[in-house]
């Protein structure tokens, strides 16, 4: 095995562990930000969820790059007012999808037919190409920022409860809540499995050994998943669960919540109207 390959084989456990840790950190960040006293943290979750949807749809429909850019600026402002640091926003939202999209859309600048802007060795940059790239990146960036600002300023439990306002069936809300809750238990289990593998390893393993390790980890995780689900079901039954789920009501919306909702609706209508 060449040294480069060996290094990569050894790295797969570390990389999986890194992904797992990253996820846990991601959630910790979100929970920390949700506890800060910023502008959005105190708003009712229902307003935020509806605002997000309305603005995202408006941005998707709009054909006007300037309008999308303004919405992006608005999202950034809201983030700042809610005490989200730019660095946090970058790590949580932009790194990943935005960078990936930039890479995907770059060839389109030279591949889209249209009016020539600049002739290069390997192709011609067209106006249409630039516009296409602009639309895509602007939309991706704006929507991701809006979504992050919502998710970072609201605890997951509240977001789920707010989905009820959008007429999502209760059973889905309950399943989503439980899934989120147990992701952490399984992440911990997966982490432990890979940690113990790493500490028991003596020397480099072959690719197929590593593959089997990953697959066996998946198998063990699946067993644990099913065992847990059985026990949880018993625990639910023990406290009266018989198939129907019920949730507590939310506290009523206050004045500032209604105002925010009206404001957002106005912005969305404005976006769509200007864009026509």
């Amino acid at each position: 095995m060449s040294p480069g390959l060996e290094h990569r084989q050894r790295g797969f456990v570390e990389r999986t562990l890194a992904s797992l840790l990253e996820t846990m950190e991601h959630t910790l960040l979100a929970e920390r930000v949700a506890e800060r006293t910023g502008m959005l943290q105190v708003r009712d979750a229902r307003v935020k969820v509806i605002a997000l949807l309305v603005l995202v749809i408006a941005v998707s429909v709009s054909h006007d790059l300037r309008v999308i850019a303004v919405t992006f600026a608005l999202a950034l402002t809201l983030g700042w007012a809610s005490k989200i640091r730019l660095v946090e926003l970058m790590k949580h939202a932009w790194w990943g999808t935005l960078v990936f999209s930039a890479a995907i859309v770059a060839p389109a600048i030279v591949m889209t037919p249209g009016r020539t802007i600049l002739r290069l060795q390997f192709g011609t940059i067209t106006e249409q190409g630039l516009r296409a790239a602009g639309y895509l990146l602007a939309r991706v960036g704006t929507v991701i920022t809006l979504c992050s600002v919502l998710v970072l300023t609201t605890s997951w439990a509240r977001i789920l409860r707010a989905l009820r306002a959008l007429r999502v069936p209760v059973v889905f809300v309950v399943i989503l809540g439980m899934t989120y809750r147990y992701i952490f238990v399984l992440l911990q289990t997966a982490h432990d499995i890979f940690e113990s593998r790493r500490s028991r390893r003596v020397g480099p393993s072959s690719a197929s050994q590593n593959r089997w390790a990953a697959v066996a980890a998946a198998g063990v995780l699946m067993s644990k998943t099913l065992e847990l689900s059985g026990e949880i079901y018993l625990a639910m039954q023990s406290r009266g669960f018989r198939g129907e789920v019920y949730l507590l009501d939310d506290p009523p919306m206050r004045g500032p919540d209604w105002l925010t909702l009206a404001g957002v609706a106005g912005v969305a209508v404005g976006i769509v109207w200007i864009s026509q």
């Binding site: 605890s155 997951w156 439990a157 789920l160 809540g177 439980m178 989120y180 809750r181 147990y182 238990v185 847990l228 026990e231 949880i232 018993l234 625990a235 639910m236 039954q237 023990s238 406290r239 009266g240 669960f241 018989r242 019920y246 949730l247 507590l248």
Partner: peptide, 30 residues
């Protein structure tokens, strides 16, 4: 279900709601 209650050995199995308040509310709601 009201008159007999069981506390499981593994609390992770028994705490399946998103927050502590939701957990306390589960039994009475059911």
């Amino acid at each position: 279900r009201r008159r007999v209650g069981l506390v499981f050995q593994n609390p992770d199995v028994q705490l399946f709601n998103p927050t502590v308040v939701d957990e306390l509310a589960f039994g009475p709601l059911q």
